[in-house]
Design a protein around this nucleic acid. Sequence first.
DNA 1: CATTCGACGTTTTTACTTTAACGGTCGAAG
DNA 2: CTTCGACCGTTAAAGTAAAAACGTCGAATG
Lengths: 207, 207
Amino acid sequence: MDSIKTNTCQFSEKEKIIIEAARKRFAHFGYSKVSMEEIAVDVDLGKASLYYYFPTKENLYQAVLSKEQNGFIKEIEGLIASKISAGEKLVEFVNMRIIYFKRFLNLGTLSLHAFMDSKSFYTKLFLNFEDQELILIDRIISEGQSNGEFEKKLDSKTATVLLHVLHGLRIRVSRGIKELEVSDEAIRQLQTEMNIAIRIFIKGISK
Amino acid sequence: MDSIKTNTCQFSEKEKIIIEAARKRFAHFGYSKVSMEEIAVDVDLGKASLYYYFPTKENLYQAVLSKEQNGFIKEIEGLIASKISAGEKLVEFVNMRIIYFKRFLNLGTLSLHAFMDSKSFYTKLFLNFEDQELILIDRIISEGQSNGEFEKKLDSKTATVLLHVLHGLRIRVSRGIKELEVSDEAIRQLQTEMNIAIRIFIKGISK
DNA sequence: CATTCGACGTTTTTACTTTAACGGTCGAAG
DNA sequence: CTTCGACCGTTAAAGTAAAAACGTCGAATG
């Protein structure tokens, strides 16, 4: 419906408090299992008052997600600006991604139906995020090519493939969830596998 | 319940006909959306007669899956025995895997609940298959290490990671399905991405 | 003996109805 | 500007009755 905001956190203090309260609930129970009333109670407001700040539930959810995603993207941009090699940047990218994944968890768990509906606001939010991630990865890879670290001739879809590989590994883990909890063990395993994968990948695109 | 059969296709002709009819239905509609009656009609039998050959629905499904999986594994063993390089074997492995994926399709689509239940016969069948695939990949990688094609020192989880990467890419595709059909376009894209990934991977583990 | 099947019991899905919960609105009040 | 109680229309949950499906058995067929 609405255009996706990529603004720079133009929220009042109260709104930030609401967003954080909402984040905790959404991250733990997922979008559909959280009611606006619950969030309102968490921040000591009536439900109607909550609607004064966020006109719809989707809007609030979008605010939560955008904040998380923008925070992540900003961190990655800081990473890109740093003086380490492109390879090390990719490794760090992967590790930061896992940390953010933990914060998301059920934040990204919506009903299968909503997932498949390509017109849903939810899908749009995540596609938009994936696009931005793709750009970031592409920048790191391009940098590596410029400074002679990576091969000059790489398939144009290389960044996409890397993103999908990471995404695929992540999905594998969240698919096996039970009892609404992703075990620490599963996350450690994911971390291990992603690190092995990214190192192989880096060598695979290096000169 | 029962132990998983890894037998060498000890089925009568009639049983094979039933298995193939069942495969078509299961592959198209998935386990839960196919009734034993339908399969019986397909092979011109009464339902009770079908039960004469396969004591349970699970048993029939297991027969279908085992046949597919064993066929795949046999093909891969043929591939391993061939005289091409280990790298080329990995590329071929990926391509064969996609072909088999097409044959499976909804064969692997069960309710999420059943997927998460680690005690279900279904989960066991697929875990068993994954174990066998892992062994095959490991053999190819080991061969590559022996003949000096791949690095001697590779993380012991390298094969697992490759398998999970491929699996993850595949899941990504089947997650987006709508209308019970995986579009040819989606499969082509999967094929492209897997090929790029495996080539990078091969270079990443090569000397 | 090897197969087939109609008829039947029991469990699981499905389709439907009712009810509770939720998203969202409005006017009043501090 | 901000808060909230009361309210509406819609959606999701709970409950239920009917249909379908899994699986069994004894008889029939050849």
